[in-house]
């Protein structure tokens, strides 16, 4: 991102710290495959909480508790045993709908991705849903998704590399801007309308103690599943 100030932490570390904050009070956080930043956020929340929340990382060994095959996560979530879950999205729209499947009119998609995975289900059964995209791209943050993989319209958070939003009463509301971003820039890079409450706040920065946890035990636990992402933790 242009204008990102030289600091002693990276943007990725700010996002991880913000995720950990969103998980405050959770008992069990599950993280799907190919989600290194949410995984780090969940592991950081566990360190900050002295072992709580419990963290289940799909694709992990030590932090993957499931013994009943790949259906167990879903059975567990259906009963309300998963308090928080993360979804990415090729498109996320102003109603909180998520599209993982492809672009263009279904079924003759102009561009297809991997598929819907468990998103249609997890988005509807998990208490605290966090939508996450590391970049903040107007082509992804659209007015209306081409295909509703997971239905929106319910409370959730949306965290991008530029800002944190919460979905409330049918629309996204800006909760905080990350340092280095302006509200004008955010508006120009977001394809859907969102509400702003004055004054516009800046996302809380990680404290030295939090950064120490992140670069110590969190990095070590993350490395088991995401060695490459773990290696990137540190000041930019």
């Amino acid at each position: 991102m242009r204008g990102w100030p030289v600091t002693t932490f990276s943007r990725r570390e700010l996002l991880i710290t913000t995720i950990a904050g969103l998980l405050d009070g959770c008992g069990h956080v599950a993280v799907g495959a190919a989600s290194p930043v949410p995984a780090a956020g969940a592991l950081l929340a566990r360190e900050l909480g002295g072992g709580r929340p419990r963290v289940s990382l799909l694709g992990g060994l030590r932090d993957n508790p499931f013994t009943d095959g790949s259906r167990e996560l879903f059975d567990c979530a259906a009963q309300g045993r998963v308090d928080a879950f993360f979804l990415g999205g090729a498109q996320i729209d102003g109603e909180g709908n998520v599209n993982l499947l492809g672009l263009g009119p279904y079924p003759a998609l102009t561009r297809r991705f991997a598929g819907c995975f468990g998103a249609p289900f997890m988005a509807t059964v998990v208490q605290r849903l966090i939508l996450f995209r590391e970049d903040h791209d107007p082509r992804c943050l659209v007015e209306r998704v081409d295909f509703v993989t997971a239905a929106g319209g319910r409370p959730c958070h949306l965290l991008t590399g530029m800002a944190l939003f919460r979905f409330d009463a049918g629309r996204f509301v800006l909760e905080s801007l990350h340092p280095g971003a302006s509200l004008d820039e955010l508006r120009s890079r977001t394809g859907f309308a969102f509400a702003v409450t004055e004054p516009c706040t800046t996302t809380s920065l990680p404290s030295p103690g939090t950064l120490a946890l992140l670069r110590g035990p969190v990095r070590a636990a993350l490395a088991e599943v995401y060695p490459r992402a773990a290696a990137t933790l540190g000041p930019s």
Binding site: Y106, C116, P120, T124, V125, V148, T149, A150, A151
Partner: peptide, 13 residues
């Protein structure tokens, strides 16, 4: 029966 999923376009298709 399966809980959730309702609202996804998968259900329409």
């Amino acid at each position: 029966p399966l809980c959730g999923v309702l609202g996804s376009d998968l259900v329409r298709w």
